[in-house]
Design a binder for these strands. Structure first.
Lengths: 197, 197
DNA sequence: AACGATACGGAATTGACGTTCCGTTTGTCA
DNA sequence: TGACAAACGGAACGTCAATTCCGTATCGTT
């Protein structure tokens, strides 16, 4: 790791970095991995060279975007911890995470694929586990969430809703129906039998 | 459409066509769209030219495979109609469809993506709707399945479980937990409120 | 067995990107 | 304002994978 305090970026460089990130966000959210570096550059109003100055490879750019998404999911979780009712907090965070997943094709490709580990910095991952674990525990303690749910189930569930949501039905809100069904299945009162181990 | 009765394929051609299909099945199930035509040819023990003789483009090959998957999902639905209990039939078909989706990376990429319409021949699609519609109606009539579920919800649900299942947890059976939760949410008795329209 | 018609193999072609390179421009600091 | 480092733009390059092409081999028929 470089412990060097590198001098601050030049003003134009900082501005361009932001532009590239913003353009990439849009391009990759729209077209997933098929988005092209040239396209990102064009949207950002810079040359490809500039994109590469800031992100050495396409992969690095995608990872930066993914990290940003994970941070938003974490933020949604933190916010949900403020909710007065544990059940509302937990389900709200789940929905928010699903929505964040659904609205970004690149991100949903990443979390939807089994290929390799997810590109999340370790500390961020840990925080995610902490926050979502706490949300879960509270809802379970309150007797609202089925007690046989474990933390490891969360990503799969969130991802399941999120990916399903990407299928554009006639009604863009159709995914909320899916989510509502799943959430009913998560209620302590809805459990018909213990989950398989 | 060609209404011409084209003469039957030569014996070697028929054999090779099967080989290609089988090899492609494996290759695409494993590596999704990243599988290469050369790789398919190698696995089939034929030259690339032969692959192209039978399937004019990569896309055509993928579509043939997808159609086959849809047919299997249809077959699973038909089989489920035999089940004595409507609920078991319905949920069994759902699980079978999810499993078929999960076990084929290429197929799950297709159904998981919103890009364009799914490559299903119209009549096959209609049969799918018929069979799954019937399964659904029976379970609803029996009072077992929540009555506010509609046919359009099925693909999203099946796909949600299937895609989630592709995420290899430590435990490869983890997706069954996800499915069990969702299925609990589908019970007439589990509905906490009508689904959003 | 001989002769088309079919089908085959795989080298060569093509096109599409990711990435690199380098001459030019711009910001910063004295 | 002049000098220099930092950053830029975008043409050019290299790679990789889909697709084409055509000389050769095989099948089915007479």
């Amino acid at each position: 790791m470089d412990t060097l305090a590198r001098r601050p970026l030049r003003a134009d460089a900082r501005r361009n970095r932001e532009r590239v990130l913003k353009a990439a966000q849009v391009a990759f959210a729209e077209r997933g991995h098929d988005a092209q570096m040239d396209d990102v550059a064009r949207r950002a109003g810079v040359g490809v060279g500039t994109v590469y100055r800031h992100f050495p490879t396409k992969e690095a750019l995608v990872e930066a975007l993914a990290t940003d998404r994970f941070e938003r999911i974490l933020a949604a979780g933190r916010e949900a911890l403020e909710a007065p009712d544990p059940w509302d907090g937990f389900t709200g965070a789940l929905m928010a995470g699903a929505e964040l997943t659904a609205s970004d094709r690149s991100f949903s490709e990443i979390v939807g694929e089994l290929t390799g580990p997810m590109p999340v910095p370790e500390p961020l991952l840990k925080e995610l586990y902490d926050v979502y674990g706490e949300l879960m525990r509270r809802a379970q303690t309150a007797g609202q969430l089925r007690s046989d749910l474990v933390l490891d189930d969360i990503p799969m569930i969130m991802c399941g809703i999120g990916i399903g949501a990407r299928k554009t039905h006639e009604c863009p809100q159709a995914w909320r129906r899916h989510a509502a069904i799943l959430i009913d299945g998560l209620r302590a009162s809805g459990a018909s039998a213990p989950l398989p181990s």
